[in-house]
């Protein structure tokens, strides 16, 4: 009898995972996966009549001037921000890790994460508009040409404002990730190297950095994904149609959505989704090779 009970329990355990997983899986299927298939179908049809049009939506997306601009800007933004953020984060993390009590500093760096984008918009206006703090500072330092008071939000410099606000918001996150990576570098190796007479710089270059390779992948991906959220600040400061230099893919998607250009949006969503999916799979491959 005892035997039988144990058997039935194993059987229950065999299906228990389904009970735990089902609610979440159902939600994901209903709200993301199945409708995404519908989006894929729509990307091959016209928006209104639903007639099959083959690849013409994709063609019109790629020929779209705004799409090209947005892709280029998004690419440029990523190419500038990622190395900057990852590098600055590592620099700050290494310095922090050498302090004995770094909790206060970590708090300062992390706090921007808690500041809602909406609350910070006013401050960005105060800093970056033509009569703002940045011009005030530059003027005091004598770096401002006479009479010139550029409005940073309305010129090509808007791009750099966006870069700054991204770094401001995400540096703490990156620093914490790097600190976690740094603490996993085995102390014993470092100690051994130091005993053998390696300088601090050499220790860092030859031991710490190679050991951080795994963290680098993850930090890059997470920073890349967070970079999509910079749309919040961009939208709140400059609206749906900001300066050309910071018109990102997110703006484009939003505007297409507002104008109900659903066919173009479907095609673009499939394209962007595929590119990201590919990037993620490559990354997973890299992770697996590390192991």
């Amino acid at each position: 009898m005892r035997h039988k009970r144990a058997g039935s329990e194993v059987y229950a355990g065999k299906w228990a995972w389904l009970g735990f997983l089902a609610p979440s899986l159902l939600g994901v299927l209903i709200f993301v996966c199945l409708p995404f298939l519908d989006v894929v179908r729509r990307s091959f049809t016209t928006a209104v009549t639903g007639r099959w049009t083959g690849l013409s939506n994709y063609k019109s997306v790629f020929e779209n001037e705004a799409f090209r601009l947005a892709v280029w800007n998004t690419f440029r933004f990523t190419a500038v921000c990622l190395p900057l953020l990852v590098g600055l984060g590592l620099l700050a993390a290494v310095q922090l890790s050498r302090l004995r009590n770094n909790q206060r500093f970590k708090t300062l760096f992390l706090f921007p994460m808690a500041v809602p984008a909406a609350a910070i918009v006013l401050v960005w206006k105060m800093v970056f508009s033509s009569g703002g703090f940045l011009n005030l500072l530059l003027g005091r330092l004598g770096l401002l040409a006479d009479g010139a008071q550029p409005d940073y939000m309305a010129s090509g410099a808007a791009f750099w404002v966006l870069v700054f606000s991204y770094v401001w918001k995400n540096l703490g996150y990156t620093v914490v990730l790097w600190l976690a990576g740094l603490s996993s570098v085995p102390d014993s190796i470092l100690e051994a190297a130091r005993v053998d007479g390696a300088s601090r710089w050499k220790c860092f270059w030859r031991i710490t950095l190679p050991n951080l390779k795994g963290s680098l992948y993850t930090i890059t991906v997470l920073s890349f994904l967070n970079s999509f959220k910079v749309f919040r600040e961009a939208y709140l400061v400059a609206g749906s149609y900001p300066d050309k230099s910071m018109y990102l893919l997110q703006h484009l998607f939003n505007n297409w959505f507002v104008n109900l250009d659903l066919d173009k949006m479907a095609a673009a969503a499939v394209c962007v989704g595929m590119v990201l999916f590919g990037a993620i799979l490559i990354l997973q491959g890299l992770w697996d090779r590390e192991d």
Binding site: F31, V32, F36, F228, Q250, F257, A269, G273, L276
Partner: peptide, 9 residues
Amino acid sequence: LPFQVTMLS
């Protein structure tokens, strides 16, 4: 995946 990709779905 960012929100923009899944927005339409």
